[in-house]
């Protein structure tokens, strides 16, 4: 766990290392800003040195002249094939925020049936992200990044709040949308203390995307089919509600490794194609 926390902290620092921005509220606009980072990290964060892939995707299709973001799609495929949801567990700065807040000593909510139901919201968020801006363009002539504008609490935490604090002139353009997003962020911050990674599990379109590729990814937690006895111990200790280590919900946190009675789970890439989910397959 300490190793993962260390990597998460390094990743967060690299993603948001524009120190002058944290003092002045000025956004970094150098060449690295045109490159997407693998995790969810708001472009408008004063510390951001890179772009958010979710924001970049939507931004390309926003405005009066939408463009298909082939470059973003390519990067998303590259990250997905290399890491899958290991990005969520090890690299995403907003994942780190959630991990830290979950350490707050309050009663925890785990493995409730409604959590799986709420996880379906991610499909709606993925649709909103993938085609929302373009549908807005078709409907109104102006594409809008709906997920960033209306939903993303990472953007509120990393972008809006620091900028409102550091750039008072921005107050004037804040309105009810900012109030809505502030309230949504507060709800999620509260939820993060009791529920492990509620944003990742219930809303994040990027995590859903990476989950599609988990079994193909080069790095990540894998199960050795020859050793697995399908006892379900990994699922029982999984904070992400995965059915089996390495499935689409798995963020490769590694918590299941010591729980496995046959040491079938490892961080090495294994032949995961033969792994069968005793609960009926890895679901989204």
């Amino acid at each position: 766990m300490a190793k993962r926390l260390f990597v998460q902290a390094i990743s967060a620092a690299l993603s948001n290392g524009n120190l002058p921005g944290w003092l002045t509220g000025r956004l970094y606009q150098g060449s690295t800003k045109s490159v997407c980072v693998p995790g969810l990290n708001c472009y408008s964060c004063p510390g951001a040195l890179g772009a958010c892939p979710v924001g970049s995707w939507q931004s390309a299709m926003s405005g009066a002249v939408p463009r298909f973001p082939l470059y973003v799609l390519g990067l998303l495929l590259l990250f997905a094939l290399a890491f899958g949801r290991t990005v969520c567990g090890w690299l995403c700065p907003f994942g780190l925020v959630q991990d830290v807040l979950h350490r707050v000593p309050v009663p925890k909510l785990e493995r409730k049936p409604w959590m799986r139901s709420l996880a379906r919201l991610r499909w709606a968020m993925l649709a909103l992200t993938a085609v929302g801006a373009y549908l807005m363009y078709l409907a109104t002539g102006t594409g809008k990044p709906l997920f960033c504008a209306w939903i993303c609490p990472a953007g509120t935490l990393e972008g809006a709040l620091p900028l409102l604090a550091l750039r008072p002139e921005i107050f004037a353009s804040a309105g009810w949308l900012t109030v809505w997003k502030g309230a949504l962020l507060a709800i999620f911050l509260l939820a993060m203390t009791a529920i492990y990674r509620p944003f990742c599990r219930f809303l994040c379109p990027l995590g859903l995307w990476y989950g599609f590729w988990n079994r193909l990814a080069l790095f990540g937690v894998a199960v050795d089919e020859a050793k697995c006895v399908h006892c379900g111990r990994c699922a029982a200790v999984c904070p992400m509600d995965a059915d089996i280590a390495g499935d689409a919900h798995c963020i490769s946190c590694g918590r299941c490794l010591p729980a496995c009675p046959t040491s079938a789970i490892s961080f090495r890439h294994a032949d995961r194609k033969k792994v069968q989910n005793e609960h009926g397959g890895a679901s989204q």
């Binding site: 002139e169 107050f171 004037a172 900012t178 309230a183 962020l185 203390t193």
Partner: peptide, 20 residues
């Protein structure tokens, strides 16, 4: 603490002043 963060966010917006 978290409630305070929420109230401050809302407050910042509602009591925003015109740009100087």
């Amino acid at each position: 603490l978290l409630f305070t963060v929420m109230v401050l966010t809302v407050g910042l917006v509602l009591f925003a002043k015109a740009p100087s």
